[in-house]
Write a protein that binds this DNA or RNA. Structure first.
Lengths: 115, 115
DNA sequence: CTGTATCCTTATTGATACTG
DNA sequence: CAGTATCAATAAGGATACAG
């Protein structure tokens, strides 16, 4: 990252992108956020929706998301636990939107053998 | 969006986001793309720029990026090899922009103990 | 210089069982 | 139901050496 190459902008942009990816990336994070967009869900319900995730991994992922304020754990009076997508997760809307658009375009490109 | 679980929109959105993340995510992909934004670079030059990456990992990452059309490998007449960021990588600009913006905002939130 | 091969260590999963 | 604990399997990463 020398002056001639990666300068101010680069030094701002790179860590910021990494920070965001650090929180979003991984096999399950986005899926969980999307899954919770359609309503609060219980642990087992989530596990069923996200086919293939183990309880251990789901547990860890939810903790991460909670730590970053994207999801909350809510215990109802009757004792059932619900995972709730926070309003803050909406701040990811633009990111998700661009991500999705690019993903769709990219797949299309591959299907057409443009790559 | 209304139904209780994951329906049409969800089923479109989820895999598209995953596809995109699959290509972008990881410790190095974004850094490499950013590093190459400031000009073509040789293998060793890249390795020096991206402090901490091993030759093996860099090699693998570059192959991935090449496969996905984001980067090209160009051999000059004198034999030197250059890694070049393709125009297609620009299609990631919106994604990166949103990612960066969110990353900045998120860090700010954490600094202010809002999470 | 541009990588690949190898070996070794560490992180991530998966499966299963088990507790409150 | 909502998880945790444990252990085995696998994947990913680092260090070093070396070939073209």
């Amino acid at each position: 990252m020398e002056t001639a190459t990666c300068t101010d902008k680069c030094r701002t942009v790179m860590p910021a992108a990494e920070d965001a990816l650090y929180i979003i990336a991984g096999k399950w994070k986005v899926r969980i956020i999307i899954a919770l967009a359609s309503g609060d869900k219980r642990f087992n319900e989530l596990q069923r929706t996200l086919t293939g995730i183990s309880a251990r991994v789901l547990s860890n992922e939810l903790k991460d998301l909670e730590l970053n304020g994207l999801v909350s754990r809510k215990t109802l009076d009757n004792g059932t636990v619900l995972y709730v997508r926070n309003a803050y997760a909406d701040s990811l809307r633009n990111v998700m939107h661009e991500l999705v658009q690019w993903g769709i375009g990219h797949k299309e490109k591959i299907r057409n053998r443009e790559i």
